[in-house]
Amino acid sequence: MRVIVSLLVLLMFSLNSFALVVDSIVCGLGIKNRAIVSKSDEFKEGDRIYCLTTLKDIRDKTYIIHRWVLDDRHFDVRLSVRPSFRFRTWSYKTIYPSMRGVWKLEVIDNNGKLLKEKVFIVR
């Protein structure tokens, strides 16, 4: 019995060791040299909001989804990810007058698992 439990624990550890790790999510008004320009958590209508996600220790080619969420609406952007010690990728959303409120950017892996989220406001 101990052998089976030990094997299950080892298997779970092995599976988790290959999970994507989100180091950070940063939002702002642009991207320059793979970094956020005008970092903020508050925006206004008419802004084009960029969210940059930094992943680390990626072992296999895969993808993530940036899910832009406002109330009961969401907009998905699929982003390719390549093996790397540190990988940065981003997407953007242009904000129109009907899109004021509290937003979330969710980072989701290729299995649908929520990895991390970032909350920001559009006034």
Rank of each mutant, 00 (worst) to 15 (best):
L115G: 05
V81M: 01
F85N: 11
N111T: 12
S98E: 14
K44Y: 10
I49G: 08
V69G: 02
M99F: 09
R78D: 08
E106K: 13
T89E: 09
S98F: 08
L105H: 06
L70E: 05
R34V: 02
F85R: 06
W103D: 05
T62F: 09
N110D: 15
Y92L: 03
W90A: 13
K39M: 08
S84P: 00
R100Q: 15
C27N: 12
C51I: 07
V69F: 04
L114N: 10
F87H: 05
K32V: 03
I64R: 06
I36S: 11
L70F: 10
R67N: 02
R88M: 11
I108W: 04
Y50K: 08
G30C: 11
Y63Q: 01
R78E: 12
D71V: 09
E45L: 05
A35L: 09
C27L: 10
L115W: 12
S84L: 02
I64Y: 02
G101E: 11
T89A: 09
K39R: 06
R78C: 04
L79Q: 10
L114M: 09
W103R: 06
F43Q: 05
K113I: 14
D23I: 02
D23Y: 14
Y92A: 14
R86E: 15
D41A: 11
L52N: 05
V69Q: 08
I65L: 13
M99Y: 07
L52C: 04
C51S: 13
R73Y: 12
W103V: 09
D72Q: 07
